[in-house]
């Protein structure tokens, strides 16, 4: 996980509602976040036994946990393709000479 610093908790700046949500920025929460999808995956894959694909309305590749596998592969493919694509397509922000700066 990327470096993460909990910014100095200056009470003045934090929105009152957010104080209750500050755990979202904790290391512990972030490190353990991965369990949420894992548990979810397990439950839904199990649930796949209970709710099978309807007869005749399934794609050829539809089998047990197929959507999970598809989701995982597709997502990883997209993210992993980002590196090479970025190398290929990224240029300096002033590339078109129009000052792409918003800020």
């Amino acid at each position: 996980m990327a470096k993460h610093e909990n910014a100095p908790a200056n009470d003045e700046d934090i929105h009152p509602l957010s104080r209750k949500l500050l755990f979202l920025g904790d290391h512990k929460f972030i490190d353990n976040f991965i369990w949420l999808p894992i548990i979810g995956l397990v439950i839904t894959v199990m649930a796949g036994f209970i709710y099978p694909f309807p007869e005749g309305y399934a794609a050829p590749w539809d089998f047990f946990a197929s959507w999970a596998i598809l989701g995982f592969i597709a997502y990883s493919f997209v993210v992993l393709s980002a590196g090479p694509l970025f190398k290929l397509l990224a240029r300096d922000e002033s590339y078109y000479g129009e000052g792409g700066d918003d800020d």
């Binding site: 976040f33 991965i34 949420l36 999808p37 894992i38 979810g40 995956l41 839904t44 894959v45 649930a47 796949g48 209970i50 709710y51 694909f53 946990a65 959507w67 999970a68 596998i69 598809l70 989701g71 995982f72 597709a74 997502y75 990883s76 993210v79 992993l80």
Partner: peptide
Amino acid sequence: VTQMQLLFAAMFAFALL
């Protein structure tokens, strides 16, 4: 179920990566 599978798998991939 299938939709949730897809979404959880994606989230899992995100967290893993």
